[in-house]
Amino acid sequence: MQRGSVLGISFTVTTRERKSPFVRLFTKTPAGVICPHFYELILSNGCPYDCAYCYLRLTFRGKKDPVLYTNRWEKVEDEIRMAGPGVFSTGELADSLAVLPPLLPRAIEYFRTQKDKYLLLTTKSCNTKLFEELSPTRQVIISFSINAPEVASKYERLAPSPFDRLNAATRLLELGWRVRVRIDPVIIEGVQHDNISIYRKICKIVGQLGVERVTVGTLRQYPGLHRFAPSAPRGGLVKAPDGRMRYSLSVRVRTYNMIAEWLGFEPALCKETYEVWEMLTWRYRGCNCTV
């Protein structure tokens, strides 16, 4: 074990060999929700940022300290080779870059040699040094999760500020890396006051960055989250047919239309329902976890 810290708050980092598979196909999407299958590539678990709404609190039953896997790379490579073509995401059970997994450099170099397999890294961090030292490749995608500053200061206290994340994204863009942005989860507390306007400034900035894709998602959580995250936002949420707590259809549609106006284009949507897509009349062109 080793110690780490974020903004003066310490956490434990565990390093060990993984006994379970490193690669598995993501097939957990409930009926009625558009979310394509992709591969989870589990190089680490957990996240030090402690965001109040994070589903990992429920997934790991309140445990949140990072676990980094130290197996021989050849074991991981064998599993990737046996899998089909597609996107391999390291960000489903961890922040991909908040604490760098020891296996990540080998993963980047492996995917660099592939033609139909892509490595997806999803992060709220600004840990870009590794990528500044490597030549870019089309087989690796770095996706930065962004939020309105007001939401980040309240619910993402230990993560870098949204503007710092955008600066990190800009650095990688300038170096030639494939960069995406997720504005997710959009949190609209006090829906009756229409405070979605707090997202206007960040959307205007993101819309001018020139990243290859922007994906947006509104707050969604399973009811059991509050057992492990009592401070998670819940205002305005109602039980949806897919089992998650969501904002109403009308609120989500209005939110996405306003964000599209501020961005200057229609974004992709994350884990949204068929009803929302139909009400928006947007055409699906892929999302954060697709090529």
Rank of each mutant, 00 (worst) to 15 (best):
D194K: 15
L263M: 02
P230T: 09
Q114R: 15
E77C: 08
S5M: 10
N127R: 12
S44K: 12
E156T: 03
N45P: 05
E261M: 05
K63R: 15
L25S: 01
K154M: 15
R171M: 14
T113S: 12
P241D: 04
K115V: 02
V67R: 04
K64V: 07
I198C: 10
E17Q: 14
R180Q: 14
E74D: 15
P230S: 08
S96M: 06
K64L: 11
R234Q: 09
R61F: 11
N167R: 15
L25V: 12
Y53L: 04
V251R: 03
R244I: 00
K239F: 10
S250M: 07
F88Y: 13
I141P: 00
R180V: 04
G91T: 11
G4R: 10
T281Q: 11
V181T: 00
T215K: 00
S161E: 06
Q114N: 06
S143F: 09
I9F: 11
W282F: 14
A152M: 03
Q114K: 15
D184M: 03
W282G: 10
V6I: 13
K63N: 12
N71S: 07
T15S: 10
L173I: 02
P30E: 07
Y222R: 15
R112E: 12
S250H: 13
R16A: 06
K124A: 09
P85K: 10
L130C: 00
R180T: 06
D50R: 14
L43R: 05
P160A: 00
R106Q: 14
V253K: 09
V67D: 03
R16W: 02
E17V: 04
K204C: 03
L269A: 09
A268S: 15
S135T: 08
R178N: 12
I187Q: 00
I34A: 00
N147S: 15
G86F: 01
I34Y: 10
G217S: 07
L93K: 13
V251H: 10
N45F: 08
F26I: 01
G235S: 15
K239E: 14
D184A: 08
V181A: 03
L103I: 09
E266S: 12
V67M: 08
K75C: 03
P241S: 01
G264P: 00
P48Q: 10
A229H: 07
E17Y: 01
T70S: 13
A148S: 13
N71F: 08
I188G: 05
P66I: 01
V214Q: 01
R213Q: 12
L56P: 05
L7H: 14
E92W: 06
A152H: 04
Y256W: 01
Y53N: 05
